[in-house]
């Protein structure tokens, strides 16, 4: 239908060449291209170009005058802090995503369990951590973890448990940043899993009940397989966001004590912006690419697979 209206004026183009520009401007694909042009320009100039530019940047020396090839990379491989950052980033991302997924799954089940009248209210309350800007809620956590005035330690002292150095000791600081990440991220999983739970047909549960399935069998053989797609894609999304996380570690520990809690993002900020060595900072952040692209490929595969199913 639409194509017909376009091809008709095209045949008359020969007769009036002076209006060919106008005719081109009226073609559907031209209009569409123009409508998408700001988007294309933005992606190319502010995302694609910087991404490629950072590879070039990573191969310059500190004053950015000389090309040094892979020197920045080999320099990092020789530094102990770098390997600590690699380890901490992976532990941080994997542990946090795992617990976010588990807690999100459990909470989603409880919300799904109660009468639908009250679900809205509970869902609304439980999503609050996700809504508060992370930098602001991390300030609250920082205050809760305060070395001398920690409100948690005050409660623990009532039970005779000694003061815990929440952000002072390396292992406790690692635990704290992961805990805060779980606190912020678990509600997102809860919302996604709740939506997925609601899409499982009731007949399956009824059939399982008649067959005498236990609650564990119901979850293992019905709920989990039906939710597999959402679970996978939410976890992958979260893995990307958590792995590249900056706000939480920056506000809570700023990488300390003695660089023990740095992840890639905070360390590249410390090295690149605060330390004034932009090439080295770019090199550090480039090490996020392999893991991010693996996650991205899996997400994309899932999206295109579902696209072709529909």
């Amino acid at each position: 239908m639409v194509d017909a209206t376009i091809s008709a004026p095209a045949s008359r183009q020969m007769a009036r060449p002076q209006s060919s520009l106008r005719k081109t401007m009226q073609r559907k694909s031209t209009i569409a291209f123009l409508m998408a042009l700001p988007l294309i320009l933005m992606i190319v100039i502010l995302v694609l170009y910087p991404a490629i530019f950072s590879i070039h940047l990573a191969m310059l020396n500190k004053s950015m005058e000389r090309f040094v090839g892979w020197n920045n990379f080999t320099f990092l491989f020789g530094r102990q802090t770098f390997w600590m950052v690699v380890q901490q980033s992976c532990v941080f991302a994997i542990t946090a995503v795992l617990f976010k997924a588990i807690i999100g799954f459990i909470v989603a089940h409880f919300v799904h369990n109660i009468p639908s009248k009250g679900q809205r209210k509970w869902r609304g309350m439980l999503l609050v951590p996700w809504v508060i800007p992370p930098a602001m809620s991390c300030l609250a956590w920082l205050w809760l973890f305060d070395p001398s005035y920690s409100a948690f330690n005050w409660v623990l002292a009532l039970f005779g448990v000694g003061p815990i150095p929440w952000t002072g000791d390396a292992n406790w600081a690692r635990f704290s940043v992961i805990l805060v990440n779980i606190w912020i991220g678990a509600p997102f999983f809860m919302i996604m899993y709740l939506a997925a739970l609601k899409s499982v047909p009731d007949q399956l549960y009824e059939a399982a009940k008649i067959d005498g399935a236990s609650w564990w069998q119901v979850i293992w053989f019905i709920t989990l397989p039906m939710m597999r797609n959402i679970i996978a894609i939410t976890a992958l999304f979260s893995l990307i966001v958590t792995f590249a996380n900056f706000d939480i570690v920056r506000v809570l520990t700023a990488g300390g004590p003695i660089d023990m809690t740095h992840v890639f993002a905070t360390w590249s900020f410390r090295v690149g912006i605060e330390g004034g060595d932009l090439p080295l900072g770019a090199t550090v952040s480039l090490f996020m690419v392999p893991i991010l692209s693996v996650a991205a490929i899996f997400i994309l595969r899932d999206i295109t697979k579902r696209g072709s199913e529909v």
């Binding site: 992606i43 952040s285 991010l292 994309l300």
Partner: peptide, 26 residues
Amino acid sequence: SATLATGVFLTYLIPETLLFIPLFKM
């Protein structure tokens, strides 16, 4: 257009922590 749609989605997956240093230099 199909490639662009996929590209838009991929752009969404690129975190800002990867881009702030090259943007700073740019």
